[in-house]
Design a protein around this nucleic acid. Structure first.
Lengths: 128, 128
DNA sequence: TCGCAGCTTTACGTAAACGTAAACCTCGCC
DNA sequence: GGCGAGGTTTACGTTTACGTAAAGCTGCGA
């Protein structure tokens, strides 16, 4: 028997409110089973939540995240579909590589700024 | 005499509408001078727009972008301020490194998916 | 049996980041 | 002097991603 989770449990784990978790369900991002009224979440739902959170950290909208999750889930059998699928993956890779470049630029600027500051600081403190 | 730009010119360059550029001005992100009614943008404004766009690609809100731009512009002379400044830079670096990790994870997943697909595709096509 | 913690739905509210429409100026050109 | 392109303010509309309040079910410990 596989593990299950309650809504409050998952919400706490990912640092969001239960409202948020239910909202993701409305959006079709997760589909817990029910036990009477209560929502029961599977490990699979938990993985999806993890993907959602990562997507959000990367600045994606919930709709975009939904598409990506569909990507993971889908299992294209037709050759045509498979080709389209590869295209989507490559597009996504391009976007990610662009973001990575943005981040690396920002990081190197931050490092430059930090260096300047540290140097300035040591000057001020020795001349004191 | 340094170069200047019109609103439509800049909007086009960065792929946004003039409304958006004015909106950023309302938010205090850029402060073009005026020539009568018209807005006149300096190279400095253009740099700021570039920073704004990069921030947006990284999923930052305009308020967060504003803080970052203030970071660049500010010139902390007090030692205390300088130390705080360094702290802010280091926090920012931590966030960026987290994002970079997220991206690298996503990228390796995409690569894995792509490989699977390409392999599957070649199988299907040779067995045809 | 009472009450309460924890969950549920329903539904209205809100902040961010613009879009869009209306109504006006103004400059250069024919 | 008319007019069209491009700019201006004002202000209401829209979407996204939830927050929040209201009102009700539900199991369980005292």
């Amino acid at each position: 028997m596989t593990e299950t989770y309650g809504i409050a449990e998952l919400a706490k784990e990912f640092g969001v409110t239960t409202r948020t978790v239910r909202f993701y369900e409305d959006k079709g991002l997760i589909s817990p089973t029910r036990e009477g009224q209560r929502r029961i979440y599977s490990p699979r739902d938990r993985v999806r939540l993890r993907l959602i959170m990562r997507g959000k950290r990367l600045g994606l909208s919930l709709d975009e995240i939904a598409e990506l999750i569909d990507l993971y889930d889908s299992d294209p059998s037709e050759v045509t579909q498979l080709k389209q699928f590869i295209d989507v993956i490559r597009e996504r890779k391009t976007v990610l590589e662009g973001q990575k470049k943005d981040i690396e630029e920002s990081l190197s600027e931050m490092n430059r700024l930090e260096k300047q500051c540290v140097q300035l600081l040591s000057q001020k403190q020795t001349s004191k």
